[in-house]
């Protein structure tokens, strides 16, 4: 199997995240970043499939210079090689533009040996739209088997369990395809000391948009199909009323709910 796993470098969710006052984009410069936690599940799934079925995994990220950290972490976990698409023109790209770049990069990776599986996380922890995998599938004209909570690979057939909105669905398709996995899928490993050492020697290529043949005018903030007109910080919730249970906590709760007309 020739596998590409797409990972995103995101601002740390536990840090305060803000908008850039100048161009209404997410301010990624101001806060520390890391490999999106949800993409660790994609990395783990890629490793599990490779270890069971053989082949090679390339980690792919599109992002600013510090995004190299996300590639490094994936290599430390055991991925074989990395591709970092780095180009100033990408700043401010929306999901559609990101998927354009990812699809072009997958095609370039596949120029040597065709790609069988593109594995993504369920959503990025910053934008959390959960649309890039479907967009990449659409651009590559590939089937998508997405939001998988359980994955089984059997030759060219991929079967997954998808905990859908109203039902549990069992979906199957043949490779090549785009797979996205949820946090129910597996338990991501921690990089071992050996893995950390080995990662230093693994090949990482840095590609520009020109390397991919993507017109810079098709990406970035100016090419976005949507625009943030304005934003506002939600008012902090005003301090609530807190009571300590002294044998009547339940009654006080019931009374509050009655006053608020909930009960």
């Amino acid at each position: 199997m020739n596998i590409v796993v797409c990972v995103k470098y995101v601002p740390d969710a536990t840090a305060e995240r803000r908008f850039d006052e100048v161009d209404n984009t997410v301010d990624r410069a101001g806060v520390d970043g890391l490999l999106s936690e949800l993409d660790e599940y994609a990395v783990e799934e890629a490793l599990a499939i490779r270890d069971a079925h053989g082949g090679e995994v390339t980690v792919l990220t599109v992002g600013p210079a510090p995004a190299a950290d996300a590639v490094r972490k994936s290599l430390q976990m055991g991925i074989d090689k990395g591709v970092h698409v780095l180009d100033d023109a990408v700043h401010g790209s929306d999901s559609a533009a990101t998927s354009l770049v990812l699809a072009a990069a997958v095609e370039k990776i596949g120029a040597d040996a065709p790609v069988d599986l593109v594995i993504c996380g369920m959503a990025s922890t910053d934008g959390s739209m959960g649309v890039v995998p479907a967009m990449v599938a659409e651009r590559l004209d590939l089937p998508q088997v997405t939001l998988a909570s359980q994955v089984e690979v059997d030759g060219e057939t991929v079967r997954v369990r998808r905990d859908g909105d109203t039902a549990t669905e069992y979906v199957e398709a043949s490779t090549p395809l785009v797979l996205s996995v949820t946090d129910q899928c597996n338990e991501p490993r921690y990089p071992s000391f050996k893995g950390i050492m080995a990662a230093k020697k693994k090949p990482v290529q840095t590609w520009s948009l020109a390397d991919l043949g993507v017109e810079p005018a098709r990406v970035g903030l100016a090419a976005a199909w949507t625009e943030v007109v304005s934003f506002e910080a939600r008012p902090a919730r005003s301090a609530g009323q807190i009571v300590t249970d002294e044998g009547d906590g339940g009654q006080k709760l019931a009374e509050y709910l009655a006053v608020q007309k909930f009960a």
């Binding site: 300590t244 249970d245 906590g249 019931a254 009374e255 709910l257």
Partner: peptide
């Protein structure tokens, strides 16, 4: 508790059944 409009510091095993009973009674 930083988020709440109303909070009870207590054991849910005691607070919730009492609240349930009170609401049902009301």
């Amino acid at each position: 508790f930083e988020l709440v409009d109303f909070g009870v510091v207590g054991d849910l095993k005691k607070v919730l059944p009492q609240a349930t009973e009170e609401i049902t009674k009301r």
